[in-house]
């Protein structure tokens, strides 16, 4: 299996003190890899660094072998990497339809891609003219993921999709990730605090602690170690 994402010796942070220290991470193509850890472990900082919002002070980030350190944030989505940030990032002032189109304005097939998202998330199709701030938490998460999918990414960075959602909705979102991986070969790097949810769909995972990767192993071993099953 090839690796879509390779991270080597990554150091990054805000100001002088690094938050991420010497991170090594490999994400195989077509897999779901989860990043677990307590609050403040550096999970969100890791995703922000991978997507270029935060520049690393050392290390390498390779997407399909291409070094991303000098690539502008706004170019990354065209290279196949989409990032759904913590808090979902739905633009509250724009309608559902505008939010979705925004995900792929640079694509010639944006209308077709938006139509596919409406098929995937029927509640969004019924609310396409509603502004983002009128949606429920679950709908906003659907919109955020759907908008990322409009770009037809190969790698999806997903930051705490279960945050603030009912368990039933979280389960639906995890099932969707699995379906997308199976049907389209999408690779997912899933940051979660809800280990049970994340490990229910992940192939492998890493546990972060104080900005370092403390454990990296299969999802089954993480389930055995942390969930006792």
């Amino acid at each position: 299996m090839t690796e879509i994402l390779q991270v080597r010796g990554l150091v990054a942070g805000y100001g002088a003190a690094p938050v991420l220290r010497d991170i090594d991470l490999t994400v195989p193509t077509g897999s779901i890899v989860t990043v677990l850890g307590a609050n403040g472990a550096g999970k969100t900082t890791l995703l922000r660094t991978l997507s270029g919002l935060l520049r690393p002070t050392a290390g390498q980030i390779l997407l399909d072998g291409k070094d991303l350190r000098r690539v502008k944030v706004e170019r990354l989505v065209r290279l196949g990497m989409a990032h759904v940030p913590e808090g979902r990032g739905v633009v509250a002032e724009l309608t559902v339809d505008e939010n979705l189109r925004l995900g792929g304005l640079w694509r010639n097939d944006v209308n077709a891609a938006v139509a596919e998202v409406y098929e995937l998330f029927e509640p969004l199709a019924q609310r396409k003219r509603n502004a983002g701030h009128l949606l429920s938490g679950g709908e906003r998460q659907m919109l955020a993921i759907g908008r990322a999918l409009v770009a037809r990414p190969r790698l999806l960075l997903l930051d705490e999709p279960s945050l603030g959602l009912a368990p039933k909705i979280t389960a639906q979102i995890m099932a969707l990730l699995q379906k997308l991986r199976t049907q389209t070969g999408l690779t997912v790097l899933l940051v979660e605090q809800n280990a049970r949810s994340a490990l229910s769909v992940a192939d492998s995972g890493v546990v972060m602690s104080l900005g370092r990767i403390a454990t990296a192993t299969t999802a089954q071993e993480l389930r055995n170690a942390y969930l006792g099953s």
Binding site: S51, L53, V73, E74, R75, L76, V77, R78, A82, H83, P85, G89, V91, A92, E93, L94, E98, R101, L102, G103, G104, L105, W106, R147, A151
Partner: peptide, 22 residues
């Protein structure tokens, strides 16, 4: 689409960058 980019960039600059907006 330029107008949509402008509005998105004004309301949510960071998210817009992630979505490919200059």
């Amino acid at each position: 689409s330029t107008g949509l980019r402008m509005r998105a960039a004004a309301f949510a600059p960071e998210v817009s960058r992630l979505l490919g907006v200059n």
